[in-house]
Simulated assay, not measured.
Amino acid sequence: MYLYNLYGLIIMTYQEISHHRLVSQKLYKSTQCSPQEIVRHLGAMQAQDYAMAKWAIGSRCDSSEKTIEEAINSAKIIRTHILRPTWHFVASDDIYWMLDLSAPQVKRFTTSAAKKYGYDDKKLDQANAKIEKLLYGNIHLTRDEIMQELNIKKTSSDDFLSAAIMMNAELDGLVCNGKMKGKQITYALLEERVVKPKTKLTKEEALAKLTKRYFESHGPATLLDFSWWSGFSATSCKLAINAIELQLNSVEIENQKYWFGNNSSTADNFRESVHFLPAFDEILISYKTREASILLEHQSKAFTNNGIFKPIILENGKVIGTWKRTIKKDYTKVETNFFNETESHKKAILFEGIKAFENYLETKIVIE
Rank of each mutant, 00 (worst) to 15 (best):
N128M: 10
L210K: 00
P85D: 01
P278H: 01
G118I: 11
I185Q: 14
A169L: 03
G321Y: 12
D172C: 13
D94R: 03
Y4H: 02
I241D: 03
L248H: 03
A53N: 01
L141Y: 03
L150A: 05
G178Q: 08
L277D: 06
H81M: 09
E272K: 13
L350G: 01
E216G: 00
P85R: 07
V251T: 15
V366N: 09
I367G: 06
D93C: 07
L189F: 10
L295Y: 14
L246Y: 01
L141S: 02
A240E: 10
N242R: 08
E149G: 07
G219R: 07
K116N: 12
T202G: 00
S92L: 01
L22S: 09
A51W: 12
A234K: 08
I367S: 04
F309A: 08
K116M: 06
Y50F: 15
A47H: 04
A279F: 04
E254A: 12
K26R: 14
E341Q: 09
D144T: 14
L141E: 09
P35E: 01
I313V: 15
W323L: 09
I72V: 15
A292Y: 11
Y360N: 03
I313F: 00
L171M: 14
R213A: 02
A114D: 00
G43C: 10
S63F: 13
A114T: 03
F280E: 06
F89H: 05
L135Q: 07
K198Q: 04
D100M: 09
N249D: 02
N262D: 05
Y4F: 15
N138S: 14
I11L: 13
K116I: 06
A91S: 15
S233D: 11
M167Y: 14
D268M: 06
K115G: 01
V251K: 05
L361F: 02
K26T: 13
D144Y: 05
N177V: 02
F339A: 11
E358H: 11
I367R: 03
L201C: 02
F351M: 02
L239Y: 01
R213Q: 11
Q48A: 03
E205Y: 00
E368K: 14
P278G: 15
A234Y: 04
S92I: 00
A208Q: 05
N359I: 00
K179H: 07
S30L: 13
S24Q: 09
L3F: 12
S64W: 08
P311A: 09
F357E: 11
S264K: 10
L239A: 03
H275E: 05
K107R: 13
T332H: 04
L83D: 02
P278A: 15
C33Q: 08
G182W: 07
T326D: 13
R40G: 05
Q184N: 12
Y258H: 07
Q299C: 06
L239V: 00
E282H: 13
N316C: 03
R143Q: 11
Y258G: 03
N177T: 07
A206T: 00
L83T: 01
Q126L: 14
V251N: 09
S112W: 04
L246G: 02
D93Y: 11
I294K: 08
Q32M: 12
A127E: 05
I17Y: 10
N249V: 02
T186E: 03
G307Q: 09
S250N: 12
V194C: 07
D49Q: 10
N73C: 13
V319L: 07
W55N: 06
R290G: 12
